[in-house]
Amino acid sequence: MAYKRGTKAIPYLILGFVAAPFLIMYVGFFLRAFGEKMVLGIIPAQWGIYNFRFLWQPITWGLEQTTMWTAFGNTMFFATLSGFIVTVICMLAGYALSRVEFRGRSFFLILQLVLHAVPGQILLIAVFFLLLYIGLLHRIPGVALARAALEIPLGVWMAKGFFDGIPWDVERAAMVDGCTRLQVWYKIFLPLVKPGIAAVFIWGFLFAWHDFIYVYTLLPGTIKVMATLIQSLLATEVIDYGYLAALSLIYSIPPLSLFIFLQRALLKVPIFGGKGT
């Protein structure tokens, strides 16, 4: 179908116009991270990795000091633990909700839905007290557990979706062939939902990696993760924007690469035809 040349350019012009400030922000961000001796405040006169000196030097602000690697390691530990908890719990619950008829199933599904009405971030006060009472406040595993709980309602729906995608006939075939319920789970379901498992894990991992408010509120100032480290540096008197841009860049690499991977993994989930009743 052929259109007039003039009208065809309009979408490009509109989106280009809207995207321009953001492109300037992103490009400026890169220039700031890799540039040294800025001319007119924005154009780097010289390229270099001076801004990345935190890779081999300790980071100090005020009277405090840490290293980038400690914070990075803490973030990795926090996010991996949280992702792991989310995956195990969501996969088990998702299977049960998708396949097993049990008392309270509907109630549980509705509960998971209604919980969306109360976002975790506004329950922070209560979570603070809860962790305090069970002795897990100010510890990464405790905060990871609390953070994982936030992703469970949506994660369970997601996992349920993956299991719903496997036809009942495949499960029935396995049972006719001699599988017990448990064997069906690890011989048939697990291999088929592998991409789903990856997706749920990455989901849990990413949200924990991105988290700011939970770690900021529930971890003490002495345990720094990347998010709170950057925030601390932003809150100092003299801000070195180049240094912060470089640090932010390092912090953003894992999620950016995972987002690309997640997209592919989600596309790989097998899709079946047939009656599927």
Partner: peptide, 20 residues
């Protein structure tokens, strides 16, 4: 099932009540 319900109850249900 169990751990899921447990964790959701612990970090969602109890906090709502605690908040109140």
């Amino acid at each position: 099932m169990g751990p899921s319900v447990g964790l959701v109850l612990l970090f969602y249900f109890i906090p709502v009540i605690l908040t109140f």
